[in-house]
Simulated scan of single mutants.
Amino acid sequence: MEKQTLPNSTLILIFGILSILTCCCYGILGLLFGVIALILAGKAKRTYLADPELYDGYGNVKTGRILAIIGVILSAIFLIMVIIAVSIHGVEGLLEISEEMRREYEN
């Protein structure tokens, strides 16, 4: 009997990678991709452990899960930093700081 590819194994890996790549997008996109990858990885792990002889591609699930955990942690840290910066400086203050940095870069 030929082994089937574990459902969503490639998608879990892609979402794990995207969670790391998008962690600096105010933390929201990274959290979204990471949480979805973790949910899908949990389902895939339960499916695989029910009958491991039937499925192939569990390595993608494990790798995607690890990447998703890293992405969620980085996104959470970045989101907390954004919340702290906005609470200290306010949105207008952050816009002024970025404008000053832009002027210094041009000179």
Results as ranks from 00 to 15, higher is better:
M1H: 12
E2K: 12
Q4A: 14
Q4G: 05
Q4I: 08
T5H: 11
N8V: 05
N8Q: 13
N8I: 04
S9L: 09
T10L: 08
T10P: 00
L11F: 09
I12S: 06
L13V: 06
G16W: 00
G16L: 03
I17H: 04
L18T: 01
I20E: 00
I20D: 01
L21Q: 11
C23D: 02
C23P: 00
C24N: 15
C24K: 14
C24P: 04
Y26C: 08
Y26Q: 11
Y26V: 11
I28P: 03
I28D: 00
G30D: 01
L32S: 05
F33S: 01
G34E: 00
G34A: 07
V35A: 10
V35N: 02
I36P: 00
A37C: 04
A37V: 00
L38H: 02
I39R: 02
I39M: 04
I39E: 01
L40K: 05
A41N: 04
A41I: 02
G42Y: 08
K43N: 12
A44M: 02
K45F: 04
T47I: 11
Y48D: 06
A50V: 04
A50P: 04
D51P: 03
P52A: 07
P52R: 07
E53V: 04
L54S: 14
L54E: 14
Y55F: 14
Y55E: 07
D56I: 07
D56M: 08
G57V: 05
G57P: 03
G57R: 01
N60E: 08
N60L: 09
V61T: 05
V61A: 01
V61G: 00
K62P: 00
R65W: 06
A68N: 01
I69S: 05
I70C: 10
I70W: 08
G71N: 03
G71D: 03
V72C: 11
I73P: 03
I73F: 11
I73R: 04
L74H: 03
L74P: 01
L74T: 05
L74D: 02
L74E: 03
S75I: 03
A76I: 05
I77S: 07
I77L: 15
I80M: 13
I80E: 06
I84L: 14
I84Y: 14
A85L: 13
V86C: 09
S87E: 10
S87W: 10
S87Y: 09
I88T: 12
H89I: 04
V91P: 00
E92H: 12
E92Q: 14
G93T: 06
L94C: 09
L95N: 12
L95D: 09
L95I: 15
E96A: 11
I97F: 08
I97M: 14
I97Y: 10
S98R: 08
M101I: 13
R102C: 08
E104T: 11
E106Y: 12
N107A: 13
N107E: 14
N107K: 15
